[in-house]
């Protein structure tokens, strides 16, 4: 990156370190910090959407829909999230390929599961074996995002369902007394009031999401854990920057990165909760009212 880094073997001390920390591999590491942020930025809204759908389904009057909603919301309570992270990408990948296979190669007669192989015709492969490397990476990342969204959607559904139940019954009765339909009462009374009840659970969920991001490594995405392992391993003198096993320091750096992320979120969410409690008929809102007087 810098001019003086052309011959790394001749450098020493801090100058060596400045060159080492800015070489191409490290730039990829810094880029992967962005991957983590990107994952959170996509998963958070999608999971909220899934969660909202799940919570509404769990409150539905139709039995099958309600059963689906209840099953979706309680699945994460019984089954470890890691199992979903292992299962969902493979399952979805096979599902997509199977659908494409049925459409694109209708006259294929061989079995698809052949012993220990999953074989579809070449045109149905996802992504196509001819596509460039970055398409494979994007596809892998999207599957990971989908797995995260499904799991965190279920967590969010749990929280939102609880928040909907927590809105005082009298509020909804008042809405009914004004002649609102169920749908109107839901949209105008229930949804605006539920957020203050949902906030503690949702902020907790955000923290869990931050702490779940290193699991991307398990899904084969080249994330920060991958690069920390890769760069920290001992490098012989054949490499431009030889060094002993430094993985411990790299993981220390990751620890600090995550600690600062969670601390920052804690502060922001604390402020948000203060703001949302203003004027609410809750303990926190009452405290603010008394303090202002």
């Amino acid at each position: 990156m810098f001019q003086y880094c052309a011959e790394p073997k001749t450098l020493e001390g801090l100058i060596w370190l400045s060159c080492y920390l800015t070489n191409e591999k490290h730039q990829l590491l810094y880029g992967s910090l962005g991957t983590v942020l990107l994952l959170m930025a996509i998963v958070a809204p999608v999971a909220m959407l899934f969660g909202f759908g799940g919570a509404v389904a769990a409150r539905s009057h139709l039995l099958p829909v309600r059963l689906f909603g209840k099953g979706y919301t309680s699945m994460v309570r019984g089954i470890p999230d890691i199992i979903f992270f292992m299962f969902v990408p493979i399952a979805l990948d096979q599902l997509f390929e199977l659908i494409r296979h049925k459409i694109k190669c209708p006259d294929w007669t061989d079995a698809i599961w052949q012993g220990s192989d999953f074989v579809v015709c070449a045109e149905a492969k996802l992504p196509l074996s001819t596509s460039p490397q970055y398409v494979h990476e994007i596809y892998g990342f999207s599957l990971a995002v989908l797995a995260f969204s499904i799991v965190f959607g279920a967590f969010a559904a749990n929280v939102l369902y609880g928040a909907m139940q927590a809105v005082p019954r009298a509020q909804l009765e008042t809405a009914e007394a004004y002649g609102m339909t169920r749908r109107q009462a839901f949209r105008r009374v229930l949804v605006p009031q539920m957020w203050v009840f949902a906030l503690p659970g949702l902020s907790n969920l955000w923290m869990i999401l931050i702490k779940a991001t290193p699991l991307l490594f398990l899904l084969g995405v080249e994330d920060i854990v991958y690069w920390a392992k890769e760069l920290g391993g001992s490098k012989t003198s054949q490499f431009a920057y030889p060094h002993p096993d430094w993985r411990l320091f790299y993981f220390m750096a990751l620890l600090v990165y995550y600690l600062s992320m969670t601390r920052l979120s804690e502060i922001v969410l604390g402020r948000l909760s203060q703001r949302l409690s203003r004027g609410q008929a809750t303990f926190a809102g009452e405290q603010q009212r008394k303090a202002a007087r």
């Binding site: 931050i210 290193p214 854990v225 620890l255 995550y258 600690l259 969670t262």
Partner: peptide, 22 residues
């Protein structure tokens, strides 16, 4: 409490393993 609650368990496993190996 802050360190162990604020960081991912996954990273803690790696960190401790590397420490024990050293």
């Amino acid at each position: 409490i802050f360190v162990f609650r604020g960081s991912p368990l996954f990273i803690q496993f790696f960190l401790f393993y590397e420490t024990f190996v050293l």
